[in-house]
Amino acid sequence: MGLIPPGVRVLERGWLSSNSVLLTGPDDTALIDSGYATHADQTLALVRTGLGGRPLDLLLNTHLHSDHCGGNALLRAALGCRVAIPAADAPKVAAWDEDTLSFRATGQQCPRFAFDATLAPGDSLVLGGLRWDVLAAPGHDPHALLFFCAAEGVLVAGDALWEDGFGVIFPELTGEPGFAEVGATLDLIAGLDARVVIPGHGAAFTDVAGALARARTRLDYLSADPLRNARNAVKVLLKFLLLERGEIALAELPALLASIPLVERVGREQLGMPTGELSRWAVEALVRAGAAAVDKDTLRDV
């Protein structure tokens, strides 16, 4: 894409792994987000190819969901890079507190990693020879960050803005505010002079106004009935499991969903469904959306 400057390379991935953004400048190199754990070897190979024999100086995360930081441990060990994470999450990572980190709650995996620095809204740093501002992007994740290069009009948005929406509004699933925060983040992005957005998933895009309009329509739809956000979360988390595993036996699905704390809680407290009913509903919803198929006694990814 012509608006992405030299030295900024988007490693576009599928939905199991987030995109990674490789930044190479005259005096430094950096990578934003590292994908999911099961793709870590692939991420390492892509980064090594992109670096062309140069070292990786710094690995940063927009937020600490497993599909954005699952390669942190391997990249740090293999490349010797420093790791910088959102400051608000630092105590949880330092203690590797699996009750407050999202990995256990969502039934996903992330190898334990260490970090060397923290990032907070208001910070400014040079990555790949360009200056980037660090901005708060709460909503999908309370401590998510944006990286904005004002000189080039490039916004690395993580899951705060995609071309057609944004990530699940997880805080609303645990009794915390999230809808208003998503709206405020969209307003913040609208006030930037962003000419190209690199999202956490999907291709980079230039129709920022159109993406914001679609995101606001989506937000209005979800916030009008919070159960819509809850249903969407269950579907997304089950789809993630399918992406990771390829297929799941239908007979095993109720017990699997019951073992995922967030899914079990949302199903019981918000949707009023025991896991057996929830699994039947989720299967039907994914099949109806064309995101899965039932083959005999197996739910498989499509």
Results as ranks from 00 to 15, higher is better:
S20T: 04
A157M: 10
D295H: 04
T106C: 06
P91A: 09
E98S: 01
L125E: 13
Q270S: 11
G191L: 03
A233D: 10
P138I: 09
P6V: 11
P177A: 10
L173T: 08
A215C: 11
L22N: 10
D97C: 01
V197E: 01
G153Q: 14
V21G: 04
A87K: 00
L243R: 04
A293K: 10
A88V: 03
G178V: 04
C149M: 02
L238D: 07
S66H: 15
A213P: 02
G50H: 12
E176A: 14
T206N: 06
P254D: 02
D57N: 12
D187V: 05
G35L: 09
H140D: 12
D225N: 15
A292V: 01
G210K: 13
G107F: 11
D193Y: 08
V197Q: 01
L127W: 12
A94F: 02
L59M: 13
E244V: 00
D57S: 08
G2H: 12
E269K: 11
I260R: 08
L161G: 03
V283D: 06
D33K: 03
G290Y: 01
F170D: 03
A211R: 06
D159K: 10
L219W: 09
L31G: 06
T62S: 15
A150H: 11
L250Y: 05
L188P: 01
A114D: 15
D295M: 06
A150T: 08
D297W: 07
L59Q: 09
D27R: 08
D123L: 13
A114H: 13
L145K: 12
A230T: 07
T185Y: 09
L22Q: 07
M273D: 02
G200M: 09
E252K: 09
D27M: 07
D33I: 00
P86D: 08
D123R: 08
G71L: 14
G183P: 10
A249Y: 02
P274H: 01
E284F: 00
G167K: 05
L74S: 02
Y221T: 11
I248T: 06
L227R: 15
V21T: 11
L16R: 04
W281D: 00
E264D: 05
G70W: 14
V287D: 02
R300I: 06
L192M: 13
N61S: 14
V294Q: 07
P111H: 11
P6T: 09
H63D: 14
E264N: 05
S279C: 08
D133E: 15
P91F: 01
A117M: 09
F205S: 07
T118K: 02
L74T: 06
V21H: 04
L256R: 14
L241K: 13
M273G: 00
L79I: 09
V47W: 04
L75T: 05
R231D: 11
L127T: 07
S223G: 10
A194Y: 13
V283G: 02
R231Y: 10
L188A: 13
G139L: 08
G2M: 05
